[in-house]
Design a protein around this nucleic acid. Structure first.
Length: 435
DNA sequence: TCTGGGGTCCTAGGACCC
DNA sequence: TCTGGGGTCCTAGGACCC
């Protein structure tokens, strides 16, 4: 049996913990550059704002409907996520953190009334962190996802499903007919693994509800759509094809990419931008104890804007796999210089670290290669010190000169005009209670 | 004029997730 | 004027091997 614990409107809920005046109001949290809505309160959903709606198209609702738009505060959300996850882990013996606001919990061997237990965990998370959640439970992960969807929808739209499913929904103990009823009341596109494309194809052959999909023959699904959807169908039928993965493998690639706050044409600014992206990517690389053997840099113009389009990328192989910020910054800057073409309004660039391998694998230099770098041991100590200082005193306290004030003005920085304080992670931002 | 069969590896592109 | 970022897995097709 599996549970899926999922934060309701997670980013919005994090903001509301520290600004209770946002309760009951339509609120959206915007993507980087205040681009589009990536989280919506129930009130915002009720206004008809779709996921991903561009801010410039909905900002008139500020006056018309009291809509509040906030810049994404990922430092806050990450910290709140850690708190929520540690409490959700109390539900069962294994936990897989699937995204910033969702975790699967394996319920193997858990005795007693699962629904009562889930309600208890849910109310503990609410009381201790201020975050509302919903919990779905079922014999497979795909069904647990579905149960979670039902729990949320039953709470948000009374009448859509039986009221007892609100907040906590356990499909595992329901009579078969009741399970069929909720599957028949749910559109096939809500299934985990069925995106817009496949949903359309399914509808074209008369598969409209989750129940329709669950009743398909797995072999037919395999030949028509492939093994991925076949697994989904089997999971809907109650046959587990996925288990809780509580020790995720290290990532195979690490990316840091950003859209710019405004278009950028000149090379020095682009070099500075990718130097900073490489710095961030290198940090992530060291956190998972990997080395990169290659680095990809890309830059592109906007498909939404008129004018000449340009999209270029270059892979820079690294002679020695490394996790050294300075080496990676150098490679990123070199790649950018190599592919740069003047005369374009670039809006996005990024760095991806490729061909990752465990840091425990040491590759020696061939004796005939010049030993022009400081011994690797010293560099490792330097990077450890830099990470520790930045962890303690804030990002960028120590940084490579390529990303600093010596460079060009930081014209490419993100737009974040509606950013809230870092309530839980910066001393100066901690809320003060007054009697 | 005639030109095998079976396998691996790599890459690009598509689809999905949140 | 203004449209995010970071991942995964699968498949098809080409290059190459014996």
């Amino acid at each position: 049996m599996y549970a899926l614990v999922d934060g309701n409107n997670f980013y919005v809920s994090c903001e509301r913990v520290f600004r209770p005046s946002l309760n009951g109001r339509p609120v959206v949290v915007l993507s980087n550059n205040d681009g589009c809505a990536v989280a919506r309160s129930n009130e915002a959903k009720a206004l008809g704002i779709p996921m991903g709606a561009p801010w410039f198209q909905i900002q008139h609702l500020q006056h018309a409907a009291g809509l509040v738009g906030l810049s994404a505060n990922f430092t806050l959300y990450g910290d709140m996520s850690d708190r929520m996850m540690s409490l959700a882990a109390g539900l069962g013996p294994t936990q897989e953190i699937y995204s910033i606001d969702e975790s699967f919990v394996g319920l193997h061997g858990v005795r007693g009334d699962l629904v009562a237990r889930a309600r208890q965990v849910r109310s503990r998370i609410l009381r201790w962190t201020g975050l509302p959640t919903c919990i779905g439970m079922a014999p497979t992960k795909t069904l647990a996802k579905l149960a979670n969807h039902i729990a949320k929808t039953a709470e948000r739209k009374p009448g859509s499903y039986p009221a007892e499913h609100a907040q906590v929904c356990h499909l595992g103990t329901l009579p078969a007919q009741d399970v069929d009823d909720v599957l028949a009341a749910t559109a096939v596109g809500e299934v985990w693994g069925v995106g817009p494309r496949i949903a359309k194809q399914l509808q074209a052959v008369g598969i409209h509800t989750v129940l329709d999909l669950a009743r398909m023959n797995p072999a037919t699904v395999r030949s028509g759509w492939g093994v991925v959807l076949e697994r989904t169908v089997r999971e809907l039928q109650g046959q587990p094809c996925m288990s809780v993965d509580d020790a995720p493998a290290p990532k195979q690639q690490i990316a840091c990419t950003r859209s710019f706050g405004q278009p950028v044409c000149d090379l020095p600014a682009l070099v500075q931008a990718v130097s900073e992206f490489a710095t961030r990517a290198a940090q992530k690389l060291r956190q998972q104890h990997s080395l990169a053997a290659g680095l990809l840099v890309f830059v592109r113009t906007s498909p939404h804007r008129a004018g000449p389009q340009c999209s270029r990328s270059v892979v820079v192989p690294l002679r020695l796999p490394t996790d050294d910020t300075l080496a990676l910054v150098q490679a990123a800057a070199e790649g950018m210089r190599r592919m740069y073409v003047p005369g374009h309004a670039f809006v996005k660039a990024g760095v991806m670290l490729l061909d990752l391998l465990p840091a425990s694998v040491q590759q020696g230099l061939l004796a005939l290669e010049p030993a022009d770098e400081p011994p690797a041991r010293d560099r490792t100590r330097l990077m450890t010190a830099v990470d520790a200082i930045n962890e303690r005193y804030g990002q960028g306290t120590v940084h490579s000169a390529a990303t600093g004030q010596a460079g060009p003005p930081r014209t490419w920085g993100m737009r974040q005009e509606r950013l809230t304080p870092q309530y839980t992670t910066r001393l100066a931002d901690i809320p003060v209670a007054r009697a």
